[in-house]
Design a binder for these strands. Structure first.
Length: 681
DNA sequence: CTTTCATTAAACATTG
DNA sequence: GCAATGTTTAATGAAA
């Protein structure tokens, strides 16, 4: 009312803001945009690469290091390339410089987050898009494997060196180091497997049942149909499936190396905290796809997607006698439509995420090596491009490192080698990809993906990557609150949780904090409880559940299917989300996902669960909304950590665990699906 | 095309 | 007066 005048006045401002919409979009997407990533990164990579090549003599250590750098360089360039567009398929080593098709399109591709399928269609001509897809896929495999191989070799070498040197060192220390290396190896391995797995999955997702009938010579992957999926994935290490061999052939032989490494140290129990990426059970993700190997031998002359007489489009393996036929097939079967676009987006996301992960692992590796060599870990040229998109229009709040960390909160552990800094600017990745602009939205709501579950899994990821989490503010706030023993937090504590858990929220504090406050006030599910020392916020589960749409987006049956079918921890949540986004409503099956290593940090109170709506002792649920001054005079709480314990405000339930009544250990994650209690059954 | 929801921005009010 | 908190309103964009 009265505000009217005010708003009227400001009109101009807000509308300018509107720009906001786009602005934020840019901030997110644009920033992530790979714009920075692609360009900046590329530049960086090149520079460093160039600079590196001048070397006279080096000590073994240096040489090793150098090689390592180079390997990383290659990998990075490759990835960047993937992300930014095309280049000549065959030889990526000489790539970028020469070929550089530089389709303007690539620019657009660099900030996929900002593009809707439609936009992409408009921007890209079918041939362009297809070319991109083709090359992306093929190159990715090729390069990645190459990279892995190099890494492998490096590590191996390293180990050998170590072994020798180790003779003089305390056995113990050596053992540890080797162990660490071994783990690193495993990680690399897993990373690779995950990657392959992702690709595979992507293919599966997009496949057309009708086509899955041809003789699957070497490409079982593509031949699977939805129904096969389960078993395929389920049968980890299914007998008779020497998944590795193909890889080995390629000379990649991860297993071999790993094994070898093992022989050195032979550490029986290697399950330390170290890797957050590791699969919970010792079993390596095995479901390796073997066929991929073949993909990188294809002759450059032809389409990367065409080999062995068949179409290698993910999920398709149609036989084509010749290139011409294949082209035709491509244009008809894989024309530029929603599905293809979605696949493309997914692929981009996969690449981006892999890059991030790769960078992370690489840094760790670097640090390890540096340490073992007693050399200072030099600033690697790798993840340099952080500068949060200089040009990006963040209206004002361009982060001052200062306000980033409100206080001495736990800072990400990654520390050592990786400063919290995002590997690359902004928002690429899952989050952004989800919807283009501001991430969030239904991803958590509609798909009922349990935020806690995903958080648990990608905890590390979000913590270090400057990626916007795909959850709504409300979900996050709730999660923050529920994670505490008391299920209550002060505003400031909520802020802290955000900054602690998400690298993304270490920027633009004014913005998201405002959003947090806004959400707290806006949603009835957040109840403010007056306290002696101030006020704390609690969550009214009932309200929270109430506000969520009862029905899920996908077909229940399908979902159910998938759920029963796949329970592969390997599939990371983000990817799931992406897939879901791309038209496959399944996944986000929470329970299924293994708690993941990171899980330990999160209580997994899992959230979307509607089932056990705990009676939450708090103020009834709604009536006298807010402001119900509790009594007691405990006041210890303070902002510091200690607080929580004290306040047992609620006389009733002795809440050890947050959720007294239902007594249910927050196990729920299982039926997560659609908890609201209907579908699932 | 309309509705609903989430986000972002901003004005204001309250409180310490 | 200032900063942190809370509330509200409005504009947007995306998804349903």
């Amino acid at each position: 009312m009265m505000v009217e005048s005010a708003s009227e006045t400001i009109r101009s401002a807000p509308s300018g803001q509107n720009g906001v919409g786009s602005i934020s979009g840019q901030a997110d997407g644009g920033g992530g945009g790979a714009g920075a990533a692609g360009a900046g990164g590329g530049g960086t990579g090149r520079d460093s690469a160039a600079g590196a090549d001048s070397n006279g003599e080096m000590s073994p250590a240096e040489l090793l290091h150098f090689q390592q750098q180079q390997a990383l360089q290659v990998a990075r360039q490759f990835l960047l390339q993937q992300a930014s567009g095309l280049s000549s398929p065959g030889n990526n080593d000489s790539k970028q410089s020469a070929s550089a098709v530089q389709v303007p399109v690539s620019v657009a591709m660099m900030s996929p987050q900002m593009l809707t399928p439609q936009q992409m269609q408009q921007i890209l001509s079918p041939p362009q898009l297809q070319a991109l897809l083709q090359q992306q896929q093929a190159l990715m495999l090729q390069q990645l494997q190459e990279y892995y191989k190099k890494q492998q070799e490096q590590l191996h070498l390293q180990l050998l060196t170590q072994q020798q040197a180790g003779k003089q060192q305390p056995k113990e220390a050596l053992g540890n180091k080797q162990l660490a290396f071994q783990q690193q190896l495993l990680q690399m391995q897993q990373l690779q497997q995950q990657h392959l797995l992702n690709l595979q999955r992507q293919g599966l997702v997009s496949l057309q049942p009708s086509q899955a009938s041809g003789p699957l010579q070497t490409l079982p992957q593509a031949a699977v149909c939805p129904t096969d999926l389960p078993q395929l994935w389920k049968g980890e290490g299914a007998p008779g499936q020497p998944a590795e061999d193909s890889v080995k052939q390629e000379g990649l032989d991860l297993t071999g190396s790993a094994t070898t490494a093992t022989s050195f140290a032979a550490p029986p129990k290697v399950s330390p905290p170290l890797s957050h990426h590791t699969l919970p059970n010792g079993q390596p993700t095995v479901l390796t796809p073997r066929r991929d190997s073949s993909s990188h031998e294809e002759t450059p002359g032809s389409h990367p997607l065409y080999g062995h007489g068949e179409c290698k489009w993910p999920g398709c393996e149609t036989l084509c006698e010749d290139l011409g036929q294949f082209i035709k097939h491509l244009n008809t079967e894989h024309a530029l439509d929603d599905r293809s676009t979605a696949q493309c987006r997914v692929q981009m996301q996969v690449v981006q995420q892999l890059e991030i992960q790769l960078a992370k692992e690489s840094e760790r590796l670097q640090a390890m090596m540096a340490h073992l060599h007693m050399r200072p870990s030099e600033p690697k040229p790798f993840s340099q491009p952080l500068n949060p998109v200089p040009g990006s229009s963040f209206s004002k709040v361009t982060v001052s490192a200062a306000d980033s960390f409100p206080d001495g909160l736990v800072h990400p552990p990654t520390s050592a080698a990786a400063p919290v800094t995002p590997l690359r600017p902004p928002g690429l990745s899952s989050a952004s990809l989800h919807s283009g602009g501001p991430a969030r939205r239904r991803s958590s709501d509609k798909f009922c993906s349990p935020i806690s579950s995903e958080l648990a899994q990608n905890h590390e990821f979000y913590k270090n990557a400057d990626v916007r989490p795909p959850f709504t503010y409300a979900s996050l706030i709730r999660q923050a609150i529920l994670e505490t023993p008391d299920r209550q937090l002060t505003l400031n504590e909520i802020y802290n949780w955000f900054t602690r858990m998400f690298a993304y929220f270490r920027r633009n504090t004014a913005t998201w904090k405002n959003a947090v406050r806004h959400n707290l006030s806006l949603h009835k599910c957040f109840v403010r409880v007056e306290n002696v020392k101030g006020a704390v916020w609690t969550v009214d589960e009932r309200e929270y559940q109430k506000r969520r749409p009862p029905k899920m987006t996908g077909s229940p049956t399908l979902v159910k299917n998938m759920i029963s079918g796949l329970s592969y921890g390997a599939l990371n949540a983000s990817y799931q989300a992406a897939l879901a986004e791309s038209s496959f409503p399944l996944l986000s099956s929470p329970g299924v996902l293994n708690p993941g290593s990171a899980g330990s940090l999160l209580p997994l109170s899992h959230d979307e669960v509607g089932a056990p709506v705990e009676p939450l002792p708090s103020n009834g649920s709604s009536s006298p909304p807010r402001l119900s001054p509790p009594q007691y005079s405990h006041q210890v709480q303070v902002k510091e950590e200690p607080a929580e314990a004290e306040e047992d405000r609620r006389p009733g339930p002795p809440l050890g665990p947050p959720n007294p009544s239902t007594a249910g250990p927050p196990e729920d994650r299982d039926l997560e699906e659609e908890l609201p209690g209907e579908e699932l059954s």
